[in-house]
Every structure is written in C-alpha cells, then in structure tokens.
Design a protein around this nucleic acid. Structure first.
Lengths: 387, 387
DNA sequence: CGTGACGCTGCAAAGGTTTGCAATGAAGTA
DNA sequence: TACTTCATTGCAAACCTTTGCAGCGTCACG
C-alpha cells in the first residue's frame, strides 16, 4: 500500500517521488531511468519501470521544462484556421515534428495582429520555438518578439530571421503570362490584406509581367482573403471591364466566381479567373479553378526543420548563469524560397485578343489586333497540368 | 545597471527576481503585484509595474502552473483539421476561452486513435483540461484518460463524462423524411468511420425513419469521411440503384457528387444527395448541397464552458496534501444535446414516386404506386431554408 | 596489497513562481 | 497609555524535475 490510486474517479497525481518510494530508490535514479537510462543498472531500471507503469506515472513536462529549458513543444501561429490553405501546412509540420519527438500547438489569430502578439507572449515559455505563418504584424514587432522566443517566419520576409517563402512572384508572373497568352490584355489583380508580404510580392511581379506582356493591370483591393472578400468585388470587377482576374487567393477566386455568377457573368467565357494556393476545394467547384499551386506541405516541413536546427545548435538548458531558452549566438538565418506551379484548369479561357484555337488551318485569320509583345515566354498553356 | 538587456540579439530572460531587485522589494511583492494587486500598496504597485515594464518582464507561465496547478490553457484535440467542419468549432472555442482568459492549443490526430491517446498524455500537464472532438478511441480508454486530466467530449456519448452532442439522429430523420416526401423509396446511407458515435446515431435514426416512411435503406460503408471517401463509392451507389443518398458528411456528399458526375450520373435529376454539417463549401459547389446543419459554433462554446465550470468547482492549486490538477469530487457530468437543422438546397429533387409538382390541377394523376406511409410528418420540403 | 578506474546511486541545489504565516508599523479604540 | 485591528511586506516552503558532484563498492592491474 503506497500511494493509493483509488480506482474510481479522482486519481491522485503520481510524481517521481511516489515511484522512488515504491521502488526503493532515490528520486534521481527514477529521473535517470527516464532521461538517461544508460546510467542506471538494468535490474534497477526494470524495477523502476515496473513501479512507474504500475502507478501510472508520467513525467511532468512542465516541471521538466522548468529546469531543462526545453519543452519539446513548438507553437504554430496561424492567421486563419478556416482557410483551407493552412491545414496541409499544419499537418506537414505536425508530422515532421512528431518524428523529432516534438508536439505542435496550433493557435489561430483571426487575422488579428494584436492576437498574434499576445499569442507569441503566451506561448513563449511553453514552447521551444514558434512558427509564425503569414503574420499580419509589422516586421519590427516580429524582430522584437524574436528576442523572446526563437521564431521561424512563413510567408513573410524579415531580415535577420529564418524565413520560409513561397515564390508567389514567379507564380503571379506565370499566371499573367498564361492570361496574356490566352489573349487577355486587360487584367485585374484582386489584392489581399495590406499587411501581407505575399500580397506585395504578387503585386510587384504581376505588374512587371503585365507590362512586359503589353497588358494593363488594374489593382483592386485590399480585400479580406475569403470567399466573401471575393464575391464582394464582383460588381467592381464587372464595371472595370477587365477580361481576366488574378486573385490573391483561391478562396477569393471562388467567391468572385460565385459573385460573378450571381451577376450573370460567366466564367471563363466572359471573364477568366486565376487563384493562388491550389486548395483541395479548387478542384471541386465548377468551373474547376486555374490556380498557382503553392508547396504548403514542404513549407511546413522546412519551417519545422529550420526551427529545430536553430534550437539544437544553441545552448540547451537554463542552468548556470543563464541565457535561458535557446537564444543567443549565431542563429541560422537562412531564407528558403520554394517553387510554385501554375495549374491550368477550367476557369481560364481565351480572351478578346486570342489567336485561333488551332494555329494551323485556322478557320478565321489571325486576329489583327493582337499586338502580342514579341518575346513573352508564354508558359505552358493548352496542355498543362489540367486536372 | 541591473540585469542588462543587451539590445541586439540574445536577451537574458528576466525573472521576477530581477524586477524585485530593480524595484527594491521582495519577490513575493512582485508576485502579488501581478496575481493579487489589491494586496499591495498602490505606490509600490506602480513602481513595480514600471520596473517590470522597463525590464520587459513576463511571468513564466510554466513555473506558475507548477505551483498553482492551473495553466490557463486548454487543449483541443481534433480528428482532422483539414475537415472544414472543425474550424468554426475551433474558432468558437478559442473566442470563448479568450473571454475567460484562457488559451487554446489545438492538436490534430489524423483520425488516429493512437495519436489521440498520446496527445492527451502529452497535453495532460500543460493544460487544465482537454476537449476531445469526435474521438476515434474506445469509450473505456476515454474514461481512463479522464482520470489523468479533465475531459469534455464532443460528438461522442460517454457515460459519466460531460459531453456535447449534436442531434444528428434528428437530423438524419429529417433528411430521410425530406427524401421520402420527395418520392424516394430506395435510399442509401453512406456510413462514416466505424468508431464514430455520429455514425451509429445516424444509422439508427435513418433506419427507423426509413422504415416508418416505407422506404428501404441500404447502408454503404464504412468509408473515410473525406471527399475521396465519397467519390470512391460513386460506382457502388450507381450499381445499388438507389435514387437518393444520405452521406455521413458534407465532404463525402461532395465527393460523391463529383464521382457520380464522372460516371455521367446527374444530381439531383437522377440521384438526390444530402450531406451533414453545412460547411461553407456546401454553398459553393454546384449543385448547392442540401444538408443537415450542425451547430458547430455553439458546440465549441458549450464545451469550453462545461470544461471551465468543471475546473472552477474543483479544488484549485496543488498545494497541501494533494489532489492536484482539478480532479475530484462531484464533476459536472451534464450531457448537452444541440439541435440540428435541415437546409434544403439544390442537390435533392423529386424521386421516382414523386407526386406532381403542383398538388392541384395536376397534369398527370397522382402516382398510383405511392404507398406513402400515412402519418409521415414530411418536414418542410419545397419552401424551406433554401439558400 | 595498494591504487586507480569504473558503474551505480544518493545528495542537494536549482529553475521561477505562489502563498501561508509572521513581522512590522500605523491607526483606531477603550 | 495599552491593546486591538489592519494594511503592507518579508520569509521560506513548496511544486516536480534534472544534474553536477561525491560516495560507495567492486574489480583489475601492477
């Protein structure tokens, strides 16, 4: 009869001390049995393990963290869990973390910069590092927070901090070239949140690509990066008279298509629409969405790797004179840029300046209006990855 | 010059002790300044707060948790974050928790019962309680785990534990009655995961309703509760010759519609499809999905409330002789059942035994085959909540 | 037989915070 | 004046674990 575990209800929390008492050894031996098994006699070890099992002992991770300075948790701060862009990233990060014996805690900020900051503070001491995904707060605040807890930023470039980026610039360029190749010369860009790095990148790249292709780009926004954000601008898109739209986001693209549909504007017959992300949903709506696929899974994995690598090379343990949770010297500050891919489906079609479908034996002569800038490398158009 | 906060890089973690030194009081006074302000002299308080602000002090929640036994965190274990059913629940839970000064940590299990168990253990000491959403593990295991950490179960009935349930039985009944009312007599039920409580409830209720309505119910499954799970059974649905399908889930319903489409079977002209959940997506696909709306937001809020209530009434603090983290005496064991609602959209239409569209002045006489069970309260059919 | 090495274990401090209790001093009451 | 009350603060134990150091016994080697 040691620490009685009453079988019904209310279990008394069993600590390392109970196990020590039960197995007749010192608590340090029990501790070592779990954290440094090779240091304890095999016989003792099995006895201790048996007692622990018997009592249902589980090490208190909070107490352990207090002294080691390592929680074996990582935090994942997400702008909006409801955006289907994120779950694949979350799952990839989780699986990668699990392989390294880490747990992931996800927190949602509702696109609110204040919530972001508060969450970083709240997580700081309970995790070994934080992945900041598509943050909405300022770069300077991010830098400041990075002094409190190791940070890896996803979808945002912050100098001096490790970042995982997706090449949406390249993606936007491909999309514009695709549209230009289809004969569109008047294109709208549906902007996302103002504080989004992705948004700025797309704008820059799309502008340049349009200029190079002899097309005119109208920027509409900023808008909420959701379906309603997209459907809300449908009227504006129609009035603007463009024949094609590149949306910040698949969700917005889908919302826009809905909105246009409600206005009696057909996609892609009257307006072509391209999204970004290639969320699962984009394959399920009609028309299926042409979109720029982003490597979300790879981003999650990479981000976790970078965070853990950074943790490992820094001093572990908060013992001694102090520099606590893995801060300090020489942090990896690598910035990784991942490729994106244009996936052509059914929401894009020939525009007003389109050349005839079959280059040879064309029924109608080539469109005289087409000023098709000479050297545009019109990326794969007809025969691409179409679903 | 007290604890120097080197401005570039590597900040030394500042503790309560630093603040005490800086403001010339004992650490206990600093502690009280934060956790029991009314106990300290206003003048002292402002001085301490100023120093704390100055040094950038933040209480170490892990250490605090170690002694109070309260982390002010709650864990949220989710079967599959990628299922759009969950985000609204997560967000509602988060917002409710935030109001009560709690943080929510979300973890995804990939529908894996083992991961579920492991996650509960990992979370146990780092949160004050766990919300188990649509768990896949056994009831007995859940009961056992509930001895380690306060638990609230969502979408599963476990006797002796607080549960938040959605009345999918009622939902399935309404759906079947709707279909029967439309003239369907041969209906399939697309089952979900075997270990799902919702699945069993639906099966039971749908079976009863079909019997009452004089229709025949074929159960197909179990299946993965995803689009691919749905599209995978399209062929089987076609072969079975049913004219209507009730799917476990909107995702499956949408997948099924896709799959049928690929086989050239049109919805709702040839087969009617009803989903469950009313995820945002169900309004965006064509045809728009008829579905049983579940109150996910309410479920999230209620679950958090029940958990916190349970925490509050139990002994706080792990001081004294012990019953530690909020276990014990008289836990609330309420089981809440939330209403569901049938939302009729475009994926359901008249079946083979349909009565003519206009009851009066019918062009064709009433179908002689229709054995329409006398007293079926065919819930709102034509003029319902249609989008 | 003495010495050193080694394997195993115990001791105690440390990590950052909370909190019951006691001490201090001032104000109020009799 | 003596005694009580009250507000404020300090003291130190406690939470659970890890870990450097030292002690002990055993064994091998010289």
């Amino acid at each position: 009869m040691t620490a009685t575990t009453s079988d019904e209800g209310a279990a008394v929390p069993v600590t390392i001390r109970d196990v020590a008492r039960a197995s007749g050894v010192h608590i340090s031996t029990v501790s070592r049995t779990f954290s440094a098994p090779h240091l304890v006699n095999p016989e003792t070890r099995v006895r201790v393990l048996a007692c622990a099992e018997d009592l249902g002992y589980r090490p208190n991770r909070a107490a352990r963290a207090l002294i080691t300075g390592r929680t074996h948790n990582i935090g994942l701060i997400i702008a909006d869990i409801a955006n289907p862009f994120f779950p694949p990233l979350i799952k990839a990060a989780e699986s990668q973390a699990r392989h390294r014996d880490y747990h992931v805690f996800v927190a949602d900020t509702n696109e609110d910069p204040t919530a972001e900051e508060e969450l970083v503070h709240a997580l700081a001491k309970q995790v070994d590092g934080v992945l900041l995904c598509s943050p909405r707060m300022s770069n300077s605040l991010i830098e400041q927070l990075s002094r409190e807890v190791p940070l890896v930023v996803v979808n945002r470039q912050v100098t001096g901090l490790p970042c995982v980026l997706m090449d949406v610039g390249q993606g936007a360029r491909s999309a514009i070239e695709h549209l230009v190749g289809l004969g569109h010369r008047s294109i709208a860009l549906l902007g996302g949140p103002r504080s989004s790095w992705t948004n700025r990148e797309m704008r820059r790249a799309a502008g340049a690509a349009a200029r190079a292709g002899g097309a005119q780009l109208t920027v509409l926004g900023p808008n909420a990066p959701t379906e309603v954000g997209g459907s809300a601008v449908a009227e504006q898109v129609r009035r603007s008279g463009v024949s094609a739209v590149l949306a910040y986001n698949d969700l917005m693209a889908i919302g826009l298509i809905e909105g246009l549909d409600a206005l009696g504007v057909r996609v892609p017959q009257e307006v072509s629409v391209v999204g970004v992300d290639d969320i699962t949903l984009s394959r399920l709506t009609r028309p299926k969405l042409t979109t720029v696929a982003t490597p979300t899974g790879a981003a999650g994995r990479t981000a976790v790797d970078m965070l853990l690598q950074q943790d490992i090379e820094s001093p572990r343990g908060a013992r001694g004179s102090g520099a606590g949770t893995a801060l300090g010297v020489r942090r990896t500050t690598a910035q990784v840029m991942l490729q994106t891919d244009l996936v052509i489906r059914d929401s894009t079609g020939p525009g007003p300046y389109a050349r005839p479908a079959r280059p040879l034996a064309a029924p109608r002569g080539p469109d005289p209006h087409c000023p098709a800038g000479p050297g545009i490398p019109t990326a794969a158009t007809g025969d691409a990855v179409a679903s």
